[in-house]
């Protein structure tokens, strides 16, 4: 839809912003056309009130837009029907009792606009029109409540569902020894994306049910290794993370240039990084030292001119095993 919203944002202070709830945010985020009813039951000005009553009863609705030549002419509601019944005037046309020129909202408006009208004017429903005043839907307070509840549920469920599914992976798939292998190709010099692979591994571990401490240790170790591939290699390299319920094994390898003196490279503060790398906040000679501090075992092998291979292991003590089933076993 090319039509833009008529809604003008208002400025709120930091103090107010602090107290904004997710529901209030949603009142500004959700659009009228996302929650409105699109399957419309309409009447015309010539429809008799008696017929309108029948339409309301069979469709279990409490109001309907009135269309004349496909343009919105008004709204007729149960209240209008009551007025009509009081006068015993059911043979009259809808045009006699309907609300003419009803207040309307636009599809791209945030639902807060509709809420304001509901609060200020006590209508049960608002017609939704496009810029040519053609009817595109109708919105009630019930539509808004349902829309907000659905959005909140989605927010909450998306990550929960992912975590729930992933955490059952190791219990749902049977084998003598199951493992999940994640592979990432890292490009030399790709500083902008540096850390993307480590991020993905950390997130995967959390979804698999690893504790925040384990995810953090693994994340930091892999991140340093990933930055090493970006900074020091000739052609980049590969990160391979194998996740098992009892341990995480990480292999990082490249095809050059290799490390001349591994003992020297392991010394805190030793670095061969250039000025550009240092400007990025790396190359302080702490990378390998950091890795070693975060893992349970580390093996670094390198052949000058051939490449380097770094093997890391993080052992998961029984209570921290990945996968939810293992945690429940613990409680028995």
């Amino acid at each position: 839809m090319s039509e833009s919203s008529h809604f003008q944002g208002r400025i709120i202070t930091d103090e107010q912003a602090e107290n904004i709830t997710r529901v209030e945010e949603l009142a500004y985020e959700l659009k009228v056309n996302e929650v409105m009813t699109k399957d419309l039951i309409t009447v015309t000005p010539e429809t008799l009130m008696q017929e309108a009553l029948e339409i309301f009863r069979t469709n279990r609705i409490s109001g309907a837009p009135v269309l004349k030549d496909n343009k919105l002419a008004g709204v007729v509601s149960i209240e209008d029907l009551i007025h009509c019944l009081q006068k015993n005037d059911l043979k009259s046309p809808v045009s006699k009792y309907m609300t003419c020129k009803p207040l309307t909202v636009h599809g791209p408006d945030p639902i807060i606009e509709a809420l304001k009208l509901f609060v200020n004017f006590h209508f049960g429903r608002l017609p939704v029109v496009d810029s040519n005043f053609a009817l595109v839907g109708i919105i009630t307070k019930g539509d808004i409540t349902r829309g907000i509840l659905k959005a909140i549920q989605q927010d909450y469920q998306e990550e929960e569902v992912r975590r729930y599914r992933a955490s059952h992976l190791f219990e749902d798939i049977e084998s003598d020894r199951s493992s999940l292998i994640l592979r990432y190709t890292i490009k030399q010099g790709d500083f902008m994306r540096g850390g993307a692979a480590s991020s993905a591994i950390k997130r995967a571990l959390l979804r698999l049910g690893a504790t925040p401490q384990i995810a953090r240790r693994t994340g930091i170790a892999v991140y340093e290794a990933e930055m090493n591939l970006i900074i020091h290699t000739t052609n980049g390299g590969v990160i391979r993370a194998e996740i098992e319920p009892h341990q995480i094994s990480i292999n990082v390898y490249d095809d050059g240039p290799g490390i001349e003196d591994i003992d020297q490279a392991m010394k805190p503060g030793y670095s061969t990084a250039n000025e550009t790398v240092r400007e990025l906040g790396f190359g302080a000679g702490m990378g390998l030292v950091n890795i070693q501090r975060c893992v349970d075992s580390m093996r670094l092998e390198s052949i000058l001119g051939k490449g380097t291979s770094l093997k890391l292991k993080i052992l998961l003590p029984k209570k921290e095993l990945v996968g939810e089933g293992y945690q429940t076993n613990e409680e028995h």
């Binding site: 902008m192 540096g194 850390g195 930091i220 930055m227 790396f282």
Partner: peptide
């Protein structure tokens, strides 16, 4: 608190909670 502005600051922050 840092004077560094590149994306690695955010990555580092994410890794270190």
């Amino acid at each position: 608190l840092t004077g560094l502005c590149n994306p690695q600051v955010v990555r580092t922050a994410q890794m270190a909670d």
